[in-house]
Structures are given as structure tokens and as C-alpha cells.
């Protein structure tokens, strides 16, 4: 399969890749760029583990071809903390114990950051609804809601 050039701006760093058109953004991040924080739970857009931001919006990296994001700005879990300082959502997840095994966590956190930015963290009910695309088999949901609530207040203040 012929490779095509793809330019991606990931977590503030510019990357130039030669990729087969069939390579997903998720596999490009994990296998080509060593950014393994983004997880694969289903590869079918059903679990949310692979959630990243493309131009600031949450996107399922397993359902996105890397080539589709040519020239776009991508943020992954590795790009959230600034100079070792956790993002308020990351800090809230840690404090509220909003995870157990941690496998769904990068996806949950990326969703939560967007959820707050979208203005969908106004009540517990709203948080549950707008975080419903991210499965957690460990069942950390009550603490995830608490963490998003806490982080939303912090971001607002």
C-alpha cells in the first residue's frame, strides 16, 4: 500500500509521518509516535477509551483515520499537564479516586475536559449524560461524576 505524507500537530509538537491511508489516528499515536497513553478498548467507537481532542473537540481516535487529521491540532492525555502541573481534571480524578484499573481513564479525562468546555457539566445528571460515551468496566462512575463536578467548579473560578 502506498504511503502518504501526514502532518500532525500533537501536544504542541509538529510531526511529519509517512503513513498508509488505512492507519487510524489511534494506531498512529500508539504504534508510530509512542504516545501510548491513549488506549484501545474496542477499536469500533463503542467504548471511548481512545478519546482525544482534534481542534479542541472530543474525537474517537479509533474511528478517525490519521490522514483525516492532516494539518489539525491534536491533544492527547500526554499533552494535558503543563510543566508537571496536573490539569484540574487530572487532579480531580486523582483526588476523587475516579478510576480503579485506570485503563479507561485517559479517555474519561479527555472527555471530561471537553464536557466542561462544552458547558455540559452543570449538574450531576448532565455530567452523567455527557460522559455516557466513556465506558468504565470497573464502575468508577460515581467518582467520575464527583471529579468532573469538582473540576468544573475549579475551571469556572
Amino acid at each position: 500500500m502506498t504511503k502518504i505524507p501526514v502532518h500532525l500537530d500533537i501536544n504542541g509538537t509538529h510531526h511529519h509521518l509517512e503513513l498508509e491511508p488505512r492507519v487510524t489516528l489511534l494506531d498512529a499515536l500508539r504504534d508510530r509516535l509512542g504516545l501510548t497513553g491513549t488506549k484501545k478498548g474496542c477499536d469500533h467507537g463503542q467504548c471511548g477509551a481512545c478519546t482525544v481532542h482534534v481542534d479542541g473537540e472530543r474525537v474517537l481516535a479509533c474511528l478517525t483515520l490519521a490522514a483525516q487529521t492532516e494539518g489539525r491540532t491534536i491533544t492527547t492525555i500526554e499533552g494535558l499537564a503543563r510543566e508537571g502541573e496536573l490539569h484540574p481534571v487530572q487532579a480531580a480524578f486523582l483526588e476523587q479516586d475516579a478510576f480503579q484499573c485506570g485503563y479507561c481513564t485517559p479517555g474519561q479525562i479527555m472527555s471530561a475536559v471537553a464536557c466542561i468546555r462544552e458547558g455540559h457539566a452543570g449538574s450531576d445528571e448532565e455530567i452523567r449524560e455527557y460522559m455516557a460515551g466513556n465506558l468504565c468496566r470497573c464502575g468508577a462512575y460515581p467518582h467520575i461524576v464527583a471529579a468532573v463536578r469538582q473540576a468544573a467548579l475549579e475551571v469556572a473560578s
Partner: peptide, 19 residues
């Protein structure tokens, strides 16, 4: 106490087998 592996897990640095 909060999880001692928590920092790794919220930053994506925890290395699972497939990583």
C-alpha cells in the same frame, strides 16, 4: 491515601502490556 499509581494513571504514563 490517594492511589500511589494515580499520577501515572491520570497522565497516561502508566504502562500497560500493549504499550
Amino acid at each position: 491515601l490517594t492511589r500511589r499509581d494515580g499520577f501515572l494513571k491520570v497522565t497516561g504514563a502508566a504502562r500497560y502490556a500493549a504499550d
